[in-house]
Design a protein around this nucleic acid. Structure first.
Lengths: 238, 238
DNA sequence: GAGTGGTCTAGACCACTAC
DNA sequence: TAGTGGTCTAGACCACTCA
């Protein structure tokens, strides 16, 4: 069995999505939820905090928990957007091409980004994402070899994340994201269908494992017309 | 006095920034922190969770709380980036020009974005942000009038947020953010120094009050070369 | 004043890491 | 086995909203 508060979280989230708790209405009070789920107040509150963090509800002191219009918020639950999540949420036909798969000694820049030890090796993966026949995303991944002995084309073509989490049983914990806009490089023009576009959107990702070790640096380069990033800026009053 | 867990949060955060707890090292255990701060374990854990959320530490079960390299993470604490925060963090010379300040009946699009009632009026504010002599940000704000009777040029020129939070004593709670790239409109070219740039980065913001009422829709339009967005994708394992 | 959520406590048991 | 963080409980008091 799972964590109690996560079970409660999912059950309430489901009811919100099913319209059983409609937007604008109030959720039952914490006391009522305690009885309904046979849980202590802190456990209920943990579930509600998760719901608030993920944009399902907003808690108002003295009033209650107000259901937000969750249907409008179609962002991925995790916040870490991998291509697979992205593409399946679009529901479109998509293909991944693995253009490069090498084990390299990183240059100074990559070494610095990855905080890699001198002499250690790094996987360099170039992947191009095609959606509806157009190559619109170009992913440059650098992964520390010390965590992954064997990286095949097949793995890269599906999902490196899934391989790591399911096969290697390591948990990816969080990423720092940085979004900037650049002029296309030679590489960009080579691998993507850039036509006349004079900019690419670059999403830099620093991915950590659960034990706080940095293991991957990714540059995801997007054609500007297809780029979209959605985020909640939750403000925990400080 | 403030909340105990926030006080503890700030004290530990300070020590991390001062290097008293260096990156890579472990924080004292929760039990030790309990004694040091004369607090219960749950209170300590609340403080530590805040630290983890804001990228100061990462908690690892069975091991402890590992200090991350916080110096690298220069993002604003709040996550809601207002121009004032942005500019002061850049430390540069900046000016705000209020180009428009009108009370209008919103068109259908704005009405929908703001979920405004038919017949209700909306403040329309155009502001241009100049940094180091260049006009690089163009903010289009739409605010529901029902919350703000009187909006002056002076208020718009400094910070609408500060006015609302300090003068009106209303708390802004969170925003949904959406980032896309567009071709410049006539307006963009009119108000910004766009030179040859063929794209603008558009940040759409939906801003709510603490009581879950939507009150503002903002489009912040940036010249691509000066745009930068930083974010943590905290992954609360679901 | 009744009801709501926010904070804090003390104590229990579990899961994981290290040695 | 000892020490760590993760979950859960029961109960207390406070701050806020609303009739």
């Amino acid at each position: 069995m799972q964590n109690k508060y996560l079970v409660i979280y999912r059950q309430i989230a489901e009811k919100i999505q099913d319209g059983e708790f409609p937007p604008g209405e109030k959720l039952p009070s914490e006391h009522e939820l305690m009885e309904a789920f046979h849980a202590s107040r802190e456990t209920i509150r943990k579930a509600l905090n998760q719901l608030a963090q993920n944009g399902f509800i907003q808690k108002v002191q003295g009033k209650g928990s107000i259901v937000l219009d969750a249907a409008k918020f179609d962002f991925p639950v995790s916040g870490l957007v991998s291509f697979k999540e992205l593409a399946s949420s679009l529901g479109n036909r998509h293909v991944t091409y693995v253009e490069k798969l090498e084990l390299i000694e990183p240059d100074k820049n990559v070494q610095k980004q990855l905080q890699a030890l001198p002499g250690s090796k790094v996987w360099k993966v170039y992947r191009v994402r095609e959606i509806d026949g157009e190559k619109i995303i170009f992913d440059k991944d650098y992964l520390k070899q010390m965590y992954i002995d064997n990286l095949t084309e097949k793995i890269c073509a599906s999902s490196i994340y899934e391989y790591i989490e399911n096969e290697l049983q390591m948990k990816i914990s969080f990423a720092k994201k940085e979004i900037i806009v650049e002029e296309p490089t030679e590489e960009d023009r080579e691998y993507m269908d850039l036509d006349g576009y004079s900019n690419v959107v670059v999403v830099k990702n620093y991915v950590y494992f659960d034990d706080a070790s940095l293991f991957q640096y990714t540059e995801s380069r997007h054609r500007p017309d297809k780029f979209k990033f959605v985020d909640f800026a939750r403000r925990t009053h400080t």
